[in-house]
Design a protein around this nucleic acid. Structure first.
Length: 303
DNA sequence: ATCCAGGGGTCAC
DNA sequence: GTGACCCATGGA
């Protein structure tokens, strides 16, 4: 297969996306070397693919490093990258809204071209959001790495190791002792198991959250699962289904960012909170993502 | 030492 | 519907 070239849309910055993926945490689901991004995914027929993405002028260059170079896989990779880096969205209306809010007006310039980097695999997104509940991110990434190392598949390519997120069936094989050894709390272990069971049984999946459903219906479906609360449901809708209405209400980082920008007086200032999000109707998830972006430690701010 | 981290469940009122 | 409490661990 020849490499794929994907034209970059306006207001797209691979560097900003790369910055997000490499913002100082030890994420085991991709690898970054210099300006090259590596990832492994599983195709619909179980094909395991390793690929790289890098900037190439007015395009992104995607190269298949491991797996069958079929036309089908080529199309799959292209679709995956488009979705992963949210390349098919016109950010112009969002930037216009930001510019109307003085505390946020710097964002279109400072974070220009940053896309909502997603987690296309809903199962992975839900597991990750459960793992990340309440604990600091560094510890959360360590917990994820242990789970992936324990029951995910590792692919070796040219001296690099890329991991596939475990299948729910693999996670269901883990006993309580294994989770405890990985420093999962009993609740976390239970919630991850519950989600795995639903996916393994086919009672939950992306197909259950069709685009014809309303936002409230999707939230209701997700929060019916033990361990998925309002925050987690919204996080998953935002990061996996890219539902622009999704807001992880109560999120500590979100509230801190709003405070820092003077957009709310305190963490109970629901009036200002709701007024702000009303102004960003249709772009709520992007606003949250950009606010999170603004929280980056100075050492990881882009130059 | 104390509080907070990209929360959620449970139970009392 | 709201509030207190627990879970578990690491970082500041």
């Amino acid at each position: 297969m020849k490499g794929i070239r994907i034209p970059k849309p306006p207001l797209f910055s691979f560097r900003e996306c790369l910055w997000f993926l490499d913002r100082g945490y030890d994420d085991c689901m991709h690898l970054i070397e210099g300006e090259i991004l590596y990832k492994a995914i599983t195709g619909p027929d179980g094909d395991r693919l390793v690929f790289s993405v890098q900037d190439d002028g007015d395009c992104l260059a995607v190269a298949l490093l491991q797996g069958t170079g079929s036309k089908k896989n080529s199309a799959l990779l292209q679709a995956y990258v488009l979705e992963w880096l949210d390349m098919e969205r016109d950010l112009q209306p969002f930037y216009q809204l930001l510019e109307k809010q003085p505390p946020l007006a710097y964002m279109p310039r400072q974070f220009s071209g940053l896309r909502l980097v997603s987690i296309p695999d809903l199962y992975e997104a839900l597991c990750w959001s459960i793992i990340g509940q309440q604990i600091n991110l560094k510890f959360a990434y360590a917990l994820k790495r242990r789970l992936v190392a324990h029951c995910g598949q590792a692919l070796q390519t040219g001296g690099r190791t890329l991991h596939l997120f475990p299948r729910p069936e693999e996670v269901l094989k883990l006993g309580p002792e294994t989770f405890r050894n990985m420093q999962y709390s009993r609740s976390k272990a239970l919630y991850v198991t519950e989600v795995s069971r639903h996916f393994a049984e086919g009672s939950l999946g992306k197909a259950h959250l069709s685009e014809s459903m309303t936002y409230d219906e999707k939230i209701g479906l997700l929060t019916a699962v033990k361990g998925i609360g309002n925050w987690t449901a919204n996080y998953a809708l935002m990061k996996s289904l890219k539902d622009m209405q999704a807001i992880p209400h109560g999120d500590a980082g979100l509230l801190n960012a709003l405070l820092q920008h003077g957009l709310i007086r305190d963490k109970k200032d629901t009036q200002s909170y709701e007024r702000l999000f009303r102004r960003f109707k249709g772009w709520e998830a992007y606003l949250v993502f950009y606010l999170w972006r603004s929280l980056a430690p100075a050492s990881f701010q882009a130059e």
